[in-house]
């Protein structure tokens, strides 16, 4: 399964809905999307991972890269994920301390630092 990406603006947040598998082959596509959004001035991102079937460290690297980019503009990158197998990867790498992870897009959009 390939990667699917779509974006939507909700208030001052940009929601990126990701579907499929994020791995060494597809991660560059997600990286391009995040870089493009930041370059276009979208500094508050919500990445909805509810449609993600598989995530590896390459995908984690892309998300960390996205976080670095938005933070350079005092922005934010929030994740939406309820899938235990995906959350486990964030836990074992310690990234649950780095990313705010929400249970719904609504929750992530309304959240403030």
């Amino acid at each position: 399964m390939d990667l699917s990406l779509s974006t939507e603006t909700v208030g001052d947040r940009t929601v990126v809905r990701v579907g499929g598998e994020i791995d060494v082959y597809t991660a560059p596509k997600l990286r391009e999307q995040l870089v493009e959004l930041v370059n276009d001035g979208n500094y508050h991102l919500v990445v909805d991972m509810e449609g993600v079937d598989f995530l590896d460290s390459t995908g984690l690297g892309v998300l960390v890269g996205g976080l670095k980019r938005v933070r350079a503009h005092e922005g934010s990158l929030r994740l939406v994920c309820n899938q235990e197998r995906i959350l486990k990867i964030f836990r074992i790498t310690g990234l649950t301390k780095v990313f705010p992870i929400h249970t719904s897009v609504e929750d992530a959009v309304q959240a403030t630092d």
Partner: peptide, 11 residues
């Protein structure tokens, strides 16, 4: 693996 290693979006 207790701590998150540094990651770079450029690989």
């Amino acid at each position: 693996a207790g701590t998150a290693p540094a990651a770079d979006d450029a690989g």
